[in-house]
């Protein structure tokens, strides 16, 4: 099963949802489409899923296909999986600015980045073959952040 998620951003991402429908002609596809307007009849389509169901679909899927949102990506990285990333393009009304395009350009080491959705099926196959060291829980960053907070609060006293 391929899980395709457009994340929680409020602009539609019809280009990815349509491409997900084409993928569904060859294997099972589940889509979280957000505010996208298209309903590809071949895929199982949800609008927005509760977080536990979203996470369960990431785990159960063979490959995660998603927009360039770090939190969605982290769900795949935590499992040591390589996601397929389709950045939202502001020129197509998919986001307010180009930050997903900039971010996606930095992800080659741990994602398969797709700009032309006609290449999605091939990208899914390439992503399925790769594994990465699983992402940790970020505790080191959290504790460093806490030490900085302590310094900031102490300076003000």
């Amino acid at each position: 099963m391929i899980y395709v998620s457009v994340g929680t951003h409020t602009d539609p991402f019809d280009r990815l949802v349509e491409a997900a429908g084409r993928l569904a002609q060859r294997e099972e596809v589940v889509v979280q489409r957000g505010t996208s307007r298209v309903v590809p009849g071949t895929a199982l389509v949800h609008d927005v899923l509760p977080p536990p169901e979203h996470e369960a679909l990431v785990r159960r899927s063979r490959v995660l296909v998603c927009h360039a949102g770090p939190s969605t990506l982290a769900a795949a990285w935590t499992l040591g999986r390589v996601p397929v990333v389709v950045p939202r393009d502001p020129a197509r009304g998919e986001h307010v600015d180009a930050h997903q395009l900039h971010y996606a350009a930095t992800l080659a080491e741990r994602a398969v980045v797709v700009l032309d959705v006609r290449e999605l099926a091939d990208a899914v196959d390439r992503a399925a073959e790769r594994r990465i060291p699983p992402l940790g829980d970020g505790a080191a960053f959290a504790h460093a952040f806490g030490r900085l907070v302590d310094q900031v609060v102490a300076r003000r006293r």
């Binding site: 970020g138 504790h143 952040f145 806490g146 907070v149």
Partner: peptide, 24 residues
């Protein structure tokens, strides 16, 4: 210490929650 944590829903909140090892 009392902390105010401020974020939009979605990815911003999900990332801020990664500071749990500190804020807990």
């Amino acid at each position: 210490m009392r902390i105010a944590l401020v974020a939009s829903a979605g990815g911003h909140l999900a990332l801020l929650l990664r500071l749990r090892p500190w804020f807990q």
